[in-house]
């Protein structure tokens, strides 16, 4: 290849790549700008904390925020311990080629791909009908837990796996027991990964709509217990924009709240993760 054509190639590629990056950025900026522009004016203390009126055209999103928190709480409360346990089992208690481990991992991989609407169907059948929880925050939260479990497990397991073989071997060579090795070496080293997994799961749970419509329902009143139906922020946006004429302004404001919430979670997680790595090892 001549030097000349090399240069041309290089130049074209540079142009293409910068164009692609711009094409990715523009809609993002547009979307965010649109949300801010149209949502900001409706956002107020009152909006965030008062109850919705007139099908959501007026009033606020107080009860909806509470329902969302409860849903996510149930979800993470179930998914995090299960996810940690499973990830530990997969990475520390089974050989990589072990049949059981492979089966579990394979089934989780498939589960990760299952569309959220299918989880909605499943949750509706199992939690609402068979277990008799009805349209409730409990049903919705459990459905969400099933949904985020695979992603949580995968991230956590991955973060256990990147811990080098040498570290494990030298821990074993010092006669450290398995539980000590896990507690002092594996868990701390995996914390950033754990956080990332947890945050990814949390984000997915907060963002979810389809799995909730038929499990936790539409009711926009303040929930009194986990057995009450509750509407999440995402479902609220859907309902306002599709089913309520003139609901768009408040849908914008709700979307802004939802997105800011997600951004806050995201930012705090990376902050924690970076602090954690800093305090444990010097930047190189």
């Amino acid at each position: 290849m001549s030097r000349q054509s090399n240069h041309v190639q290089e130049y074209c590629l540079t142009v293409i790549i910068w164009t692609a990056a711009t094409m990715v950025s523009i809609p993002f900026i547009w979307l965010m700008g649109d949300l801010l522009w149209n949502g900001w004016s409706h956002l107020s203390f009152n909006f965030v904390f008062s109850a919705p009126l007139n099908a959501g055209r007026e009033g606020g999103i107080g009860p909806i925020l509470i329902s969302t928190l409860l849903l996510v709480g149930v979800c993470m409360g179930v998914a995090v311990p299960m996810g940690m346990g499973t990830a530990l089992f997969l990475s520390e208690y089974t050989r990589h080629d072990h049949v059981l481990g492979r089966l579990i991992r394979g089934s989780l991989d498939v589960l990760a791909g299952v569309p959220s609407i299918v989880f909605g169907l499943f949750g509706n059948a199992l939690f609402c009908q068979v277990l008799g929880f009805g349209f409730s925050i409990l049903s919705g939260g459990l459905t969400l837990a099933c949904m985020v479990l695979p992603i949580l497990i995968r991230t956590v397991e991955e973060s256990f796996r990147v811990i080098s073989r040498e570290q494990r071997l030298s821990a074993a060579a010092l006669g450290l027991s398995k539980s000590t090795t896990i507690r002092t070496i594996l868990l701390p080293a995996a914390i950033p990964g754990l956080l990332v997994g947890g945050i990814l799961g949390l984000g997915r749970a907060i963002a979810e709509t389809a799995a909730l419509i038929f499990t936790s329902g539409y009711v926009d009143r303040m929930p009194e217990s986990l057995m009450d139906s509750g509407r999440s922020l995402a479902v609220h946006i859907y309902d306002l924009s599709m089913n309520v004429a003139g609901g768009n302004p408040h849908a914008y404001a709700t979307a802004l709240v939802l997105v800011s919430l997600l951004f806050m979670i995201n930012l705090s997680s990376s902050w924690i993760a970076s602090r954690w790595t800093l305090s444990n090892q010097l930047p190189t």
């Binding site: 208690y93 579990i104 589960l111 299918v118 099933c146 398995k178």
Partner: peptide, 27 residues
Amino acid sequence: RDDLLSGSVRFLALTAGGLLLLVIAFL
């Protein structure tokens, strides 16, 4: 402590792994 840990971890993993079957069964 090791035994306790491995027992509970195994239980959780089996539950998580069985979830897919449960979903398919219900569908």
